[in-house]
Design a protein around this nucleic acid. Structure first.
Length: 473
RNA sequence: GCGCCCUUCGUCUAUCGGUUAGGACGCCAGAUUUUCAAUCUGGAAAGACGGGUUCGACUCCCGUAGGGCGUGCCA
């Protein structure tokens, strides 16, 4: 029987959780869930200078928002330095590693000559077999792995297939720095092993590292975990995803009004497919996800498709949940304070009533919010040019007549409102549009809005009639 | 420079030697409609290039071009 699957997501907290990291986390999570296993979290904060508390929180918050939960406590790599050092010493003791006293200047010179001679810049192994007694005084050595000189290292990758590296191309990497701290290469191997990780799923920018790490595993006589290197996500222009090209923190997507389920669905389809299917519930994703269906070519991030999916999920969402999700979007608005004041002054009630109708026609919560602003706009409404035109001719008279009918309605319900407007149109011998458009203009100052009856209802009788009166003859 | 990876409509992808190369987003046209959105119908749109292998290649092999990643006492 195969051991329980354990995957891990190991971000380095030097920035925020960007879209590529989010997808890596998602794949790890799906794979673990699919196999009834666990996904552990590890914060790779070895680089103290560049790791910040804010970044760690942003990553954790981002994962939570996306609905991706790690199992068990998150491991902080920085707390494991002693263990890393211990493993490096053990390697040294068994002769699989050695102390190297080469200075930074020597290393630089080495690379320079290599470049000049057109050779790959690699450490030349000058301390590999040197006697420790030759060590220069006062120099703190690093510990390097005594990597094999010949043969090849094969990574049986679950996504990439068998990837081969000639060992001669892999030099003796540093595993412990001169200050006694572990390098990433060592720390990753030790932590993955100690955490019981069975399957490593990460970006294919780590593919070369996989070979080096594989060498460390072998030197330690530890089993090499299964690996899957997934292709990176590129920006819309095909260039590497950078801060200028869509590599925004997930919290930015939240502020832009995307729903986590939509982002997740979009992300899972970037690189992974299941026939012609596009939409997957969380359960379906977990059930169907497998690494064999992950492609090997990089994908471009496409906001248009994300928006489409987001619209889909917004239409399906619970209106009350949408109202809650609006928070971060409102905070990101330039006029956030005024907006909140308007919402508190009755806007929220109107918004709640109009929500189903609003959600139907917006692709993001940001768009929804923009479309909702007429709800709490101050009278007299500013008229768009095209809206103003709808108020010409007979329109003011019709508005006045409608207001009279509205005033007489016993109840201000969707049914009553619709019946009244339709009856008026019919009696006046007008197509509904002839009545609805002027109404829309008077009520929203615009030519586009949610369904007119929904607008009437959301505004409430008093406000609606007041706005109509402003434009009536 | 060297190593590794990649290459089907504009984008995400299906295809796992034999298909009119399918779907989705976007785009265009039409239908519907109280506007917008949604929805429905239809349309334009792809195998980077050159060689092989094969009865037959998008699919396998080689090369070229293009792209990506790596090449640190960063992670």
């Amino acid at each position: 029987m195969k051991p329980k699957v354990v995957t891990r997501f190991a971000p380095s907290p030097t920035g925020f959780l960007h879209i590529g990291g989010a997808r890596t986390a998602l794949f790890n999570w799906l794979y673990a869930r699919h196999h009834g296993g666990e996904m552990r979290l590890r914060i790779e904060d070895t680089d103290r200078a560049r790791s910040t508390k804010e970044a760690i929180d942003a990553i954790l918050d981002g994962l939570t928002w996306l609905g991706i939960e790690g199992d068990g406590e998150a491991l902080y790599q920085s707390e494991r330095a002693a263990r890393h050092r211990e493993v490096a010493e053990a390697l040294l003791a068994k002769g699989a590693a050695y102390r190297c006293y080469t200075s930074a200047e020597e290393l630089a010179a080495m690379r320079e000559t290599a470049a000049a001679e057109g050779r790959p810049p690699r450490y030349d192994g000058r301390w590999r077999d040197r006697d420790p007694s030759e060590a220069p005084a006062g120099v703190d050595p690093v510990i390097r792995l005594k990597a094999p000189l010949e043969g090849e290292t094969v990574i049986p990758d679950l996504v990439q297939g068998e990837v081969r590296f000639a060992n001669k191309d892999l030099d003796d990497l540093v595993i412990l720095r001169s200050d006694g701290s572990p390098t990433y290469m060592l720390a990753v191997v030790v932590d993955d092993h100690d955490m019981g990780v069975t399957t490593i799923i990460r970006g294919d920018d780590h593919l070369t590292n996989a070979a080096r790490q594989s060498l460390i595993y072998k030197a330690l006589d530890w089993p090499v975990p299964e690996m899957a290197h997934i292709p990176l996500i590129h920006g819309p222009d095909g260039a590497k995803l950078s801060k200028r090209h869509g590599a925004l923190g997930v919290e930015t997507y939240r502020a832009m009004g995307y729903l986590p389920e939509a982002l997740r669905n979009y992300l899972v389809r970037l690189g992974w497919s299941h026939g012609d299917d596009e939409f997957f519930s969380t359960e379906a994703m977990i059930e169907l996800f497998d690494l064999g269906s992950v492609g090997r070519s990089p994908a471009r991030f496409d906001f248009a498709k994300l928006e489409n999916m987001n619209g889909h999920y917004m239409r399906e969402a619970d209106p009350a949940a949408l109202l809650d999700a609006l928070g971060p979007v409102i905070d990101a608005e330039e006029d956030a304070p005024a907006l909140k004041a308007a919402l508190d002054a009755g806007g929220r009630e109107r918004l709640a009533i109009a929500m189903p109708s609003l959600a139907e026609r917006a692709k993001t919560l940001k768009e929804l919010l923009d479309n909702a602003r007429f709800l709490w706009a101050a009278r007299p409404l500013a008229m768009e040019e095209k809206a103003q035109k709808l108020l010409d001719g007979e329109a003011p008279a019709h508005l006045a007549a409608l207001n009279a009918r509205f005033a007489a309605l016993p109840d201000w319900t969707a049914e009553a409102i619709e019946a009244a407007v339709r009856a008026y149109a019919e009696e006046a011998g007008l197509k509904l549009g002839k009545v609805a458009q002027p109404l829309r203009a008077a009520l929203t100052g615009s030519t586009t809005s949610p369904g007119i009856f929904d607008v009437l209802l959301a505004l409430g009788r008093d406000e609606a009639m007041a706005r109509i009166a402003d434009q009536a003859a």
